[in-house]
């Protein structure tokens, strides 16, 4: 855990800026980057302690990520990409996390400045910094008033490793509106399959999936 990792800023052809984090970088080094999106800072503070950030490298996070659900969601809606070790190319973070046998990662690429992209996150927890009962995050790419990319990620509403909602696809190629958000929220109610536990029943989680998704999508508008 204590190897030093490197951080580089890369400017892409479309003007986007990406931070490239060596997987030895600690989570605390991620959060202190001035240009890191607010949603990632939000995900790595509050319920994540300074100690956890100092002990956890990106490699360790990628190997066993379940204890940082908000960070996963934040990275997903920011379109983070995993650079594989040994020149094996790149992989979308969602695919990487879902792969049964994860390949060794070399770096994590986090787009930090993307023209037209808006991201937001909301959480309901037992206490303000407690473990999330339901967390929702949205990332929309809005160009000339049209949604050209949409990601809606949730935790606490599916029984297994599953974060991205397909309902968000309904937003693409149209302007963001109350109606389009309502359509997503409605579809989401069908899509989720929440567990039930002492933190919240399935019915509550399902309701909150809608409430929080609406909230984060409206925040992106």
């Amino acid at each position: 855990m204590m190897k030093k990792g490197s951080i580089q800023k890369v400017v892409m052809k479309n003007g986007s800026q990406v931070l490239q984090f060596d997987v030895n970088v600690l989570l605390d080094e991620v959060i202190v980057q001035a240009s890191i999106p607010e949603v990632i800072k939000q995900a790595l503070s509050g319920s994540v302690t300074w100690q956890q950030r100092n002990e956890t490298s990106l490699a360790r996070f990628l190997a066993g990520s379940s204890q940082f659900p908000a960070f996963i969601l934040a990275l997903l809606v920011c379109d983070a990409v995993v650079q594989l070790d040994g020149g094996q190319g790149e992989m979308d973070l969602n695919n990487y996390l879902l792969s049964k046998k994860r390949q060794q990662a070399a770096a994590l690429w986090i787009p930090v400045e993307v023209p037209g992209r808006k991201v937001a996150m909301a959480k309901i927890g037992l206490t303000p910094a407690g473990r999330g009962i339901v967390i929702a995050a949205a990332g929309l790419l809005i160009e000339d008033g049209t949604v050209n990319g949409a990601r809606l990620a949730l935790s606490g509403v599916w029984p297994n490793k599953h974060w991205l909602s397909t309902a968000a696809d309904k937003l693409v190629a149209a302007p963001l509106s109350e109606d389009s958000i309502q359509a997503v929220v409605q579809a989401l109610q069908e899509e989720v399959d929440p567990p039930s536990d002492y933190l919240g029943s399935a019915a509550y989680r399902r309701a909150m999936a809608g409430v929080l998704s609406r909230q984060v999508l409206e925040a992106c508008g």
Binding site: M1, M2, D28, W50, Q51, N54, E55
Partner: peptide, 16 residues
């Protein structure tokens, strides 16, 4: 403190 930063010593081995 490990190199000046707080860590939980129950989560690390002595080798750390």
């Amino acid at each position: 403190l490990l190199d000046g930063l707080p860590v939980r010593s129950c989560m690390l081995t002595a080798e750390a």
